[in-house]
Every structure is written in structure tokens, then in C-alpha cells.
């Protein structure tokens, strides 16, 4: 049968920063073609296509929580593949090679992670699963 694409609405203006991205204005409606785990979604709008940050999009037909995994409070060990300094207060500063526990894999590519007693957001794109057991 035909492929039904999900429709989303932009919640704010987003100006693209590379050729493969798509700029959107608040209230624009896009169709999502592919959702990458790192939080970039490939969208089409009219005759244009490109990647849009998922956090700028909300579903037209109510929340899409069904797609989101439940939090895993035990945590899943991951290793940071790059240094990252948090830009917002709720983000963690982590150095390359440090181990963290991933508690919640959010669809927007910003995962809730724990290091010691501190919890905050960290970009999924800079994490890879550790082979170690918890």
C-alpha cells in the first residue's frame, strides 16, 4: 500500500546550517520521511527536503510517545566519543572516553544520562554503547 508519512509542525523558526538541512518557520507543516536516532529527522515540505532537528517539531496528531522507549533507571553504559561542554544548564560536560549511564533515549537526540550522582542531557550522537555489563 501507499506509504503514509507522519505530519509534524515546527514549533519555532530553524535556520539551516548546512546544505543537507531544511529551514523551517514556526507553524510550518512538514512530512517526516526518516527519523535518525541522533535527533535529526529527514523531512519534506512542498518540493524541498532536508534534515531538521526533531526538537523543533511536534506531531500534528497528538503526542508520539508510543515511539519513545521507557526510561531505564538502571542505566545502560555508554562511552563519550567526543568532548562536549554543555551549553544550557541542564546539559552535562563530558570528556571523550568517559563512561556514562543512559537513562532515557529521547527521540530528539538529547539523552538523559547519569555520571555519578549528576544527571543531565547529552547529545546521542557523541555516545556509543559500551561492551561492559552494568
Amino acid at each position: 500500500g501507499p506509504i503514509i508519512l507522519q505530519s509534524y509542525r515546527a514549533i519555532a523558526d530553524y535556520e539551516k546550517s548546512s546544505k543537507t538541512e531544511l529551514s523551517v518557520k514556526a507553524e510550518d507543516e512538514v512530512e517526516v520521511v526518516e527519523k535518525d536516532e541522533n535527533g535529526w529527522w529527514f523531512c519534506q515540505m512542498k518540493n524541498k527536503r532536508g534534515w531538521v532537528p526533531a526538537a523543533y517539531l511536534e506531531p500534528l496528531d497528538g503526542p508520539d510517545e508510543s515511539e519513545e522507549q521507557d526510561p531505564d533507571y538502571a542505566g545502560e553504559l555508554h562511552i563519550a566519543t567526543k568532548d562536549y561542554s554543555g551549553e544550557l544548564q541542564d546539559e552535562l560536560d563530558i570528556k571523550k572516553g568517559e563512561t556514562v549511564e543512559v537513562i532515557h533515549k529521547l527521540l530528539d537526540g538529547w539523552w538523559v544520562v547519569r555520571r555519578g550522582s549528576v544527571t543531565g542531557y547529552f547529545p546521542a550522537t557523541y555516545l556509543k554503547k559500551s561492551g561492559e555489563a552494568v
Binding site: 532537528p53 510517545e65 550522537t125
Partner: peptide, 22 residues
Amino acid sequence: TIKRPPENPPPRPPPEVRRKQA
């Protein structure tokens, strides 16, 4: 064909417009 997504983390919208996380 769909090109690979950008390698940098996707930007987060300003807190005042950010949708509520579950």
C-alpha cells in the same frame, strides 16, 4: 536518496518554545 544526517548534535530550540518532554 537520503543523505546521511549531520554529524553535529541537533540544536535545541529556546527553552520558552521547547515542547514538554515526557
